[in-house]
Amino acid sequence: MYLLFGENITCGYGSVDILFNCDVGVNEGEISSIVGPNGAGKSTAMKALFGLLPIKQGKIILDGEDITNMPPRQRVLKGMGFVPQTNNIFPSLTVEENLEMGAFVEQHDCTKMLEYIYELFPVLKDKQFQLAGELSGGQRQQVAVGRALMTKPKVLMLDEPSAGVSPIIMEGLFNKVTEIANQGTAVLMVEQNAKQALKISNLGFVLNQGKNLFTDTGNSLLENKEVRQAFLGG
């Protein structure tokens, strides 16, 4: 049983459907990656899971509870964190304020979580009073992930975390993702860099034209000849 499961989802923008009867999900403490070519509906799937798009068919289940019709704000409270692909920080707030905003819905003190984030991303500790907009691309991503982690979510959803950062930084970021998952937070991410993503993933969902093409463990997808040829560049 998945911790977060989007079951049989059909949705899209207006009358145009993007996803058709799609299944995506992630297990507790694991990493799942959604990969596929451009326009496969990867980001749409993310938005649908987080309630940013109305769903025409199917349901979304979090920890055994049906959350299909829950507004995003409520999902944050239920233990979901989402990092959008772009515009994922508050540029004119300081790093620390960015993180505080992540914990906005929490009533209690967030200093413990702050410490955890600074441990995870030590760079941010040095820059805690700097404006987030002044940071480098990789550091911004760290702020964005940190912000989403502030509510101690059960599931962290990352929409193309490596977009626009250099390969070295990307590797560091993926290490952090693994670390986050090891600490007990399930991670569901969409990635362009399918190879690297699948390497660290327990589960992989290959989408094409809004449909599930393959679903398997990360390693077996990497070894699958068909997948390699069609989506991983040989």
């Binding site: 704000r73 508050f90 540029p91 004119s92 707030l93 304020e97 505080e100 992540g102 906005f104 912000r147």
Partner: peptide, 23 residues
């Protein structure tokens, strides 16, 4: 204040503010 910061956050990035649960 938390409320004041949330106001600045909202003016900075409305979508993200909504994702963070700011009303």
């Amino acid at each position: 204040t938390k409320t004041g910061k949330s106001m600045r956050a909202y003016s900075d990035n409305k979508e993200l503010a909504l994702l963070s649960g700011i009303n």
